[in-house]
Amino acid sequence: KTVEVNGVKYDFDNPEQAREMAERIAKSLGLQVRLEGDTFKIE
């Protein structure tokens, strides 16, 4: 899975870890996480 923030992509081998990281980043920035294919987009 991939986490994308402001056009910057971070790859994770563990999908659960990617989801947790995406949620943590989104919460700290006051944004939403949206799953698009294999990418968690933070917008």
Rank of each mutant, 00 (worst) to 15 (best):
E4Q: 10
F12T: 02
K1C: 15
G7M: 04
R24C: 15
V8C: 15
T2A: 11
G37Q: 05
A18Q: 01
E16C: 15
S28E: 14
Q17N: 08
L31F: 09
N6I: 05
T39D: 02
D11N: 14
G37I: 04
E23D: 10
G7V: 03
I25C: 15
T2W: 13
E43K: 08
Y10C: 15
K27M: 12
L35E: 09
E16F: 11
L35Y: 12
Q32P: 09
K27E: 10
E20K: 13
A18K: 00
I25D: 00
E16D: 12
A22S: 03
A22T: 00
V33N: 02
I25N: 00
A22Q: 00
N6M: 13
N14M: 07
D11T: 15
I25K: 01
K27G: 07
A26D: 00
K27P: 00
S28R: 14
I25P: 00
R24G: 05
V5Q: 01
E23W: 13
Y10L: 07
T39F: 04
G37F: 06
K41H: 11
F12W: 04
D38H: 09
K41M: 09
L35V: 13
K9C: 15
K41P: 00
F12E: 01
M21L: 09
V33D: 00
P15L: 11
E20P: 00
Q32N: 10
L31M: 13
R34A: 05
V8L: 09
E16I: 11
R34P: 02
G30P: 00
G30E: 03
L29H: 06
Q32G: 08
E4C: 15
I25R: 02
L29R: 04
I42D: 00
I25M: 09
V3A: 01
D11Q: 15
L31S: 06
L29E: 02
D38I: 05
L29G: 02
E4Y: 13
R34H: 09
K1D: 03
E4A: 06
I25W: 13
A18W: 05
D11V: 15
T2L: 07
K1R: 13
N14Q: 07
Q17K: 12
I42E: 01
E20N: 09
V5M: 08
E20G: 06
A22Y: 04
N14R: 08
E43T: 12
I42F: 10
L35F: 09
K41F: 14
R19F: 08
E16V: 11
A18V: 03
Q17D: 13
V8Y: 11
R34S: 07
Q17Y: 08
L31D: 00
E20V: 11
F40T: 01
E4T: 08
F12Q: 01
S28N: 09
F40N: 00
E16P: 02
Q17P: 02
K1G: 09
K1M: 14
L31E: 03
E16K: 11
G7H: 05
T2Q: 09
A18N: 00
N14I: 07
G7N: 05
L31Y: 10
E20C: 15
D38G: 12
L29C: 14
E4I: 14
N6G: 10
R19S: 05
V5L: 11
S28C: 15
G7Y: 03
T2H: 13
E36L: 06
P15R: 07
L31A: 12
A26R: 02
T2D: 03
L31H: 05
L29P: 00
V3Y: 04
V8R: 12
G30T: 02
I25L: 10
R19W: 11
E4N: 07
R19H: 06
E36V: 13
R19T: 03
Q17H: 11
V5I: 13
D13Q: 11
F12H: 03
E4L: 13
F12I: 05
G7Q: 03
E23F: 14
P15W: 12
D11W: 15
L31Q: 05
V3S: 01
A26L: 04
Y10W: 10
V3K: 02
V8W: 10
K27H: 10
E20S: 10
E23S: 08
I42Q: 01
V33K: 01
E36R: 05
F12C: 14
G37V: 04
E16R: 10
G37M: 04
I42P: 01
D13T: 11
M21E: 09
E4P: 02
V5K: 02
V3H: 02
K27W: 10
K1A: 13
G37K: 06
Q32Y: 11
R19G: 03
Y10N: 01
E36A: 06
D38E: 08
E20R: 13
S28G: 07
D38F: 08
A18M: 03
P15S: 10
A18G: 02
R19Y: 09
I25Q: 02
T39S: 06
N6P: 01
A18L: 04
A26I: 03
F40I: 06
A22V: 05
V5D: 02
R19N: 03
V33W: 14
R34L: 08
L31W: 13
S28W: 14
L35N: 05
L31N: 01
I25F: 08
F40W: 15
F40R: 00
V3I: 10
N14G: 06
K27R: 13
E36K: 04
E23Q: 11
D13L: 10
P15G: 09
K41A: 03
I25A: 04
G37W: 05
D38W: 06
L29Y: 08
K1H: 14
P15Y: 13
G7I: 02
K9I: 10
Y10H: 06
T39L: 08
K27C: 15
K41D: 02
F40S: 01
E16S: 10
E43Y: 14
T2R: 13
R24S: 09
Y10P: 01
R19P: 00
I42L: 11
R34Y: 10
N14Y: 08
T2I: 12
E36G: 02
L35R: 07
E43H: 08
R34C: 13
A22C: 06
S28K: 14
K9N: 05
Q17G: 06
R34G: 03
R24T: 09
E20T: 11
K1I: 12
E20W: 12
Q32E: 10
K1E: 03
G30W: 04
